[in-house]
Amino acid sequence: MASRGAILLGQCMPCIKKNASKIRIRRMELDKNLNMYFKKEEFFFAHDPEKVCKTGDIVLIRELPQRLTRLISHEIEKVVYPMGDITDPLTGKKVVVGKYRDQIEEANRLYGKSEKAFDYEKAPPRGRLEGTRDFTHGETYIKYHEDGKDQPFAV
């Protein structure tokens, strides 16, 4: 089991463990009684000391020859698709929903691009609002106790 070094494709989930990322692997499982496939989720912890992958990224993980700790059994092989920054594998261009990014930019230029509008070149990389405005890097919970302190992840 451990020696085969299997590679899996999954999505990164919010995780509080240091040095590790929680990866969700989704497979379809056949229910023989209903003769239908249902989603089945499995979670793996991958060794990731530099936190290469962020919540929502699609990543490849490789099985380690030996477990690092009781939880960590995989390592991050590659970040295939960073979330919200998709590259089309055929043309190598960036995509937003159904259009190429440069098509959108071209349309904006033809209409006369507004100065205040969002600019990809000026925009800093993802992650600067973590903990201030964007709380997707952790798991939120329903607030159950009032202790007078600030609970940023309480909903």
Binding site: G56, P82, M83, G84, D85, V96, V97, F118, Y120, A123, P124, P125, R126, R128, L129, R133, D134, F135, T136, E139, T140, Y141, I142, F153, V155
Partner: peptide, 28 residues
Amino acid sequence: LRRWDYRRFEWMLEKLDLVYKPPPAEFH
């Protein structure tokens, strides 16, 4: 928007002065 274009999403949060918290995994 977060799924489509992350940096634009962050820019929007700043522009509109919003906080985004994902919903908790399950309700109780």
